[in-house]
Design a protein around this nucleic acid. Structure first.
Lengths: 214, 214
DNA sequence: ACGGCAATTATTCAATCGTATAATAACAGC
DNA sequence: GCTGTTATTATACGATTGAATAATTGCCGT
């Protein structure tokens, strides 16, 4: 009896790791964290379960890599949207809008974010990843704010800049969370428009100063 | 061989259900959702595992009851803080402060909230519970805002009231989330003070109009 | 073309999960 | 005090989990 084994093809380490992480995210998005079993992930990636432990120390480490991938993707999408413009005002506006329109306001993205958020409390590794991304996001907001107020000719102390950044970040996060959780309650552009108006108020700008085209 | 069984005492249905729910929350707060197994919960409640299915259809239904208990607790704590005062301005202020001080800004509360949030995407029952609480919270904010602007003598259209409520809620939620996740980054009263100043800006009030004692 | 390294598969294992069922002990009503 | 009801325990079951080990197959260097 000759045993019939699956035929397979070898892949580079980077390629396999990415495949496995992508499969992990697919599983989580579909069934939540409970759907992310080594077997289901492997099946989705087109490999067998044992291979996971060849590329990762264990399932936990792979989940951490997946979390990192999700947060990096979100942060980078928003930052890239801001960087595409030259004028500080437009950059700030685009940054806010990007955080409240797809692909960031997206059911799948929220599912992934939500699945990982609870691990922050339990696992220090996840806490570190969160902290890292939160501070990076805050730093980006501060940079955008400094440039904007500089262009506007308004003085902005570092302390107030940081305070603004924290509030702005909280507002955007909150709108993103509730807006995506209850997507059916909001129109297409309602979230982004609401955010722009709110940020104008938050920064004590004149109405329309940020949102309206000049 | 006479079998020696545990001695036990009977309890009323309401009592047992509450014990089981409290035990569930303890388990979740300690080990996350993965620590909430029927055996661990039963052990913590001082009963055996089988009893859970005598009071609940299954583990899922008990988790839903536990989620409802957490959200009710949070909402009620905030609302009660607001209702203790008579003056609309003080009520609004107290409501905001209550949402950004213990026991709402509390590591345990956040753990519980986070553990459940991911279920909203997967399980419609959890989505319904979330929706219910979100709308109740929003309604409370609108009521507080209407009273406040009425006292102030400022006109406030229903549309703008709702818009304010959504933004205010998002801001408070975001500050609560990040502030509790990274509690070590913020001072004792920094969060609440920051929220009050931000809400003043959000509502286009004069600085100190909400926060300062008269 | 071929030998050897290691990427991948196949299989097994012990642990733990939620649930179902039957035995039993506590308590209420009489 | 006895009896019936049922809350509670005890035990068992099948499924599933993450991990460990051994077998094998693809592929690169020569």
């Amino acid at each position: 009896m000759a045993s019939a084994r699956r035929s397979y093809s070898r892949a580079s380490e980077a390629e396999r790791r990415e495949d496995l992480i992508l499969a992990t995210l697919d599983c989580i998005a579909e069934d939540g964290i409970k759907g992310a079993t080594v077997r289901q992930i492997a099946a989705r990636a087109g490999v067998t379960a044992g291979l996971i432990r060849h590329y990762f120390t264990g399932k936990d480490q792979m989940l951490q890599a997946a979390y990192r991938a999700v947060m990096d993707g979100m942060t980078r999408t928003a930052i890239k949207a801001a960087r595409e413009d030259e004028a500080p005002r437009a950059r700030l506006r685009r940054f806010i809008i990007a955080n409240l329109t797809p692909p960031i306001t997206d059911s799948r993205t929220l599912s992934l974010w939500a699945a990982f958020i609870s691990h922050i409390q339990t696992d220090p590794s996840f806490a570190a990843i969160h902290r890292e991304n939160y501070l990076a996001f805050l730093q980006e907001v501060e940079t955008l704010l400094l440039a904007f107020f500089d262009e506007r000719g308004t003085a902005l102390s570092p302390k107030q800049c940081r305070s603004f950044a924290i509030s702005l970040n909280a507002l955007v996060d909150g709108l993103w969370l509730e807006g995506t959780l209850a997507a059916d309650l909001f129109d297409e552009h309602e979230l982004a428009d609401s955010a722009l108006a709110s940020v104008e108020a938050l920064l004590r700008l004149t109405p329309g100063e940020l949102a309206l085209e000049k």
